[in-house]
């Protein structure tokens, strides 16, 4: 109902309704409390105005009242906290099987690449009714991916991936804004999110001519850069076998265990000696500066696509299941 109000932003994702609900609740609650306080102030100010024959009464205070207006707001605040945290938790936990869109932000444009290989600049086509996960990095300053109609925002940092996901619900064209100040043309770093019906989206996908899927591009790079000489799938290589690695815990030489998420893969390519998997030697050269952010994305997409052909119930599967929780945006 509220989206027909003037000055109310379009609501085009599953989280938009949730955010609006809490926002409207807060508006009503705070509006009422504000009105009550203002009414009290006005009534007191008029009723007890200074005039001849009226004397102030001397009141010290009241512990009961103090306790009331400490505990009652405290409890209400806790409820708001839990509600807000619940929405945030969902926003930060991408569902399984979302379509990945790799995003590279730079001063002052947005570059997107779909898993299917299509590239776009300052425009992103997505289908209605599908979970879409943005895997984002920046080439320079910090930017922020903000789609008001989806009520989502996520800063995009250089040197790592941050992620955001959404599930568009209504076809249309919506604003994409950069929300983190990034220099001269910050306000020009804008674009359109085009939400399409699935059929139209398929047409759009196939309309751009034949493009190599991102993982295939990654596969090509993987052999061009010589990765495949050490990272072999037959366990004979000098580097770890990458098949089925993604999303699994990795035991490191220093005893820590890390989840092989996008950020882990990215860092292992950029700075391989920082985290050595147990049993391997620090012999991999760094690829920092040798591969672009787009190429990194392709490599990561390729490694993610290397799934074991027969998912077996391995001994470590309980660890693997428990490890799916932390979102890829974690700071280490």
């Amino acid at each position: 109902m509220f989206e027909h109000f003037p000055f109310w932003p379009a609501r085009a994702s599953t989280s938009a309704g949730q955010v609006d609900a809490l926002f409207i609740f807060l508006l009503l609650l705070c509006g009422l409390v504000c009105l009550a306080i203002f009414a009290l102030i006005i009534v007191f100010a008029l009723r007890y105005r200074r005039r001849a024959g009226h004397q102030a009464e001397h009141i010290e205070g009241s512990n009961a009242l103090e306790l009331t207006w400490t505990v009652v707001p405290g409890c209400i605040f806790l409820c708001i906290f839990v509600w807000g945290a619940y929405i945030y938790f969902q926003e930060r936990t991408p569902p399984e099987g979302a379509a990945d869109v790799y995003t590279v932000a730079k001063q002052w444009m947005w570059k997107f690449q779909h898993e299917e290989g299509q590239r776009e600049i300052n425009e992103l086509h997505v289908p209605v009714g599908r979970d879409v996960r943005m895997i984002m990095t920046s080439q320079d300053a910090i930017h922020s991916f903000f789609v008001p109609a989806f009520r989502i925002k996520q800063d995009v940092l250089p040197g790592r991936y941050t992620t955001a996901w959404f599930h568009a619900t209504k076809p249309g064209t919506y604003h994409l804004f950069c929300a983190e100040y990034c220099g001269t043309m910050h306000s020009g770093m804008i674009g359109d999110i085009v939400v399409m019906e699935p059929a139209q989206y398929q047409a759009w996908l196939s309309g751009g001519g034949s493009t190599l899927p991102l993982a295939a591009t990654g596969e090509k790079l993987f052999s061009e850069l010589g990765c495949s000489t050490c990272h072999r799938s037959d366990m004979q290589g000098r580097g770890p076998n990458l098949v089925g690695l993604f999303g699994k815990p990795v035991l490191l030489e220093d005893g820590r265990t890390m989840i092989a998420d996008e950020n882990y893969l990215r860092e292992c390519i950029q700075n391989p000696t920082l985290r050595i998997p147990k049993g391997y030697k620090p012999i991999m050269p760094t690829f920092q500066g040798l591969v672009s952010d787009e190429q990194l994305n392709a490599l990561v997409a390729y490694i993610k696509s290397l799934k074991q052909s027969q998912p077996k119930q391995a001994a470590g599967s309980s660890v693997a299941a428990a490890s799916q929780q932390p979102p890829a945006t974690q700071v280490h």
Binding site: F23, C30, F81, W83, Y88, I152
Partner: peptide, 21 residues
């Protein structure tokens, strides 16, 4: 009071994601 009350909006994680910046 109004500034403080709107602080409750921005302290709520889910709402802050939308309104921050």
């Amino acid at each position: 009071t109004m500034g403080g009350m709107t602080g409750l909006f921005v302290a709520a994680l889910g709402v802050d994601v939308h309104v921050t910046d």
